[in-house]
Design a binder for these strands. Structure first.
Lengths: 350, 350
DNA sequence: ATGAAAGCGCTAACAA
DNA sequence: TTGTTAGCGCTTTCAT
């Protein structure tokens, strides 16, 4: 032994120093002094000494023993997307206050990576899951459910699975957005979405389509193939805009599609909203700042986070009997934030 | 017992099913079959059965026994900042490939929260730390060092502590930026920074100041108080711009300061770069997209991530003797990405 | 080449 | 009221 490493304090050290048994120490530390009728005097001495030496129980050992880690696994699509970052942050904050820790990871919407992450979280024995499910992971989520690990999905759901979830009424959002554009006099409204079949994307498309049909207009839908090569995405959108005539307005189905769309529109030198009106599903700091400011269908991030964590903690504390019908399925409304990008020339928001 | 929960497979189940001892199973699973001279036949049978039933060792028990968790704690200032998000993502990717998991948390630059997070990571027995230190946590980091837990700081360092670190030469970055503005003929160049005393912020200020002094110009420095209320920040910058005359160029010391600055400039209806040239320390997707595109002092994110993880894994695998001089202290260069916001009218980048 | 057994640090049932 | 002790699931030494 080259250098003597300072040994960490153990529960044993506490007990022997104080001349009490380790059970006493453990009980006091876990707030069970009263119910085990340990004298206040002893309890005080234990607490004081623990504080003094800064003793921290080994969570690994504790978790192994109790089967509880007080850790929640949060699996989102992309933690660098402001929407997920904000929701994750709010969830973390509230969970922390109630004694739970969050560990999060991004799936990049890749089913294989999602599977790997779920598996890793299971190995680490998370007490519960919060998942933004990518396509094709019904089996894995089903397995979690079967083990009765409390789980809440958000942003989108898996129709085949009876789970708790918190989602947003995207159809209502795009329906309102299209309605707003129609009211402004736009008639050739396109919708740019991804090639994903996920529920939230299909809902957004549905709201748009319904609005157009009600006005006897033909939907103009572009499904972009999602890829890491952003240049390809931009080029794809650019080509769509160029070849779609007439087209005087576009609703983008996600905030990043809007960003690529703005780049495409810049390349084409079209003016917003003079040549082309723009609305983004999901807001972004950039949209407030952009000139002109971009109209957005905002999602209620605080409410999403609050519902998700409330449901999960409820399940964690009072596990529901595994019945066919999950107890909590929440659908929240969006809010249309009208800014300059969707207004006829000369008009002002509000 | 209302419902029988399907028991998870244990190493015991594997051993007894295969009629071998648990030691054999463990050895095979940990790749020590050869060195323990276990027959290939047995090893194969074990592997096959483990695969078949999908057995996963309990990491909690494993870690408790070995003292290794194969988890690295990553403590950054704000995971929703694209700079940290990108570096974190790159670090995670490389760590994952080498069998390590990352758990990350944001400090919001709050020393109390930082302490809490470090403490939580220690309780969870992370094998190593990657830390973006907020001010006033020398004591905590010192304690980690004393326990010989491998640690790397990045983005900024703690001058009082002999640690491994990976930082960027911010002074060189702002010096070059100021030089570029001077070359473009700007003479009244301001510098907007925060009230933080952290090394990276001081370095950035130093580079700017040196450039101006070399040209016998007076530095115009604004230190903004960082706050959650973004309106206050914007108003603060706006007031500074309004009351600083003459002023024909500004270097912002962080990307978010630039974003607030742009909002302030919009309010004031100043044109970029006709009325005011702009350069941002640290790039951002938005800056490429903005009209006009914003010149930025870009940090080498890939290189930062690679250096950080290489150093940490090196220490994890071959712990250096705790000597006074830490082995790895890396300073990386920045790159000035010249875009339209810093060019005299009519000129084009490149 | 394989098995028995001693812990890692903690909790909680049971004894005293 | 407090102490003793049997595990939680795994790794690894040592004996066979």
């Amino acid at each position: 032994m080259a250098s003597k490493v300072k040994k960490r304090t153990l529960i044993n050290d506490i007990a022997s120093h104080l001349q009490v048994s380790i059970a006493t120490v453990s009980l006091v530390l876990n707030g069970k002094a009263k119910q085990s009728r340990i004298s206040d005097a002893v309890a005080q001495r234990v607490l004081a000494y623990v504080e003094e030496v800064g003793y921290k129980p080994n969570q690994l050992a504790k978790s192994l023993r109790t089967g509880k880690t007080h850790v929640i696994g949060l699996v989102v699509e992309d933690i660098s997307n402001p929407f997920f970052a904000t929701v994750a942050w709010l969830i973390e904050k509230q969970a922390f206050e109630r004694g739970y820790r969050i560990i999060y990871c991004s799936t990049d919407n890749d089913p294989a990576k999602t599977r790997e992450l779920i598996s890793m979280f299971q190995e680490r024995h998370v007490d519960g899951f919060i998942i933004v499910p990518s396509e094709g992971i019904e089996k894995e989520v089903g397995a979690i459910l079967r083990e009765h690990t409390p789980t809440v999905l958000f942003d989108r759901l898996l129709p085949a699975l009876p789970t708790n979830y918190v989602v947003v009424d995207g159809a209502q959002g795009t329906y309102a957005a299209a309605g707003h554009l129609l009211e402004q006099g736009y008639r050739h409204i396109a919708f740019v979405t991804t090639d994903s079949q996920q529920t939230q994307m299909e809902e957004r498309l549905r709201g748009y389509t319904r609005a157009l049909h009600e006005h006897n207009l033909t939907p103009l839908v572009k499904r972009v193939t999602v890829t890491k090569e952003t240049e390809k995405l931009v080029a794809d959108i650019q080509e769509f805009i160029q070849h779609t005539t007439p087209c005087d307005a576009i609703i983008f189905a996600t905030n990043y599609l809007t960003i690529y769309g703005l780049e495409a529109i810049n390349h084409l030198q079209r003016r917003i909203p003079a040549d082309l009106a723009i609305i983004s599903y999901d807001d972004h700091d950039l949209f407030r700042l952009y000139s002109p400011a971009i109209t957005a269908i905002a999602q209620p991030v605080e409410s999403i986070a609050k519902n998700v964590i409330d449901i999960l903690l409820q399940e964690l504390q009072h596990p529901t009997e595994p019945v066919a019908e999950p107890a909590y399925q929440v659908v929240l409304p969006t809010e249309l934030l009208i800014r300059c990008s969707s207004l006829r020339q000369g008009r002002q928001p509000e």
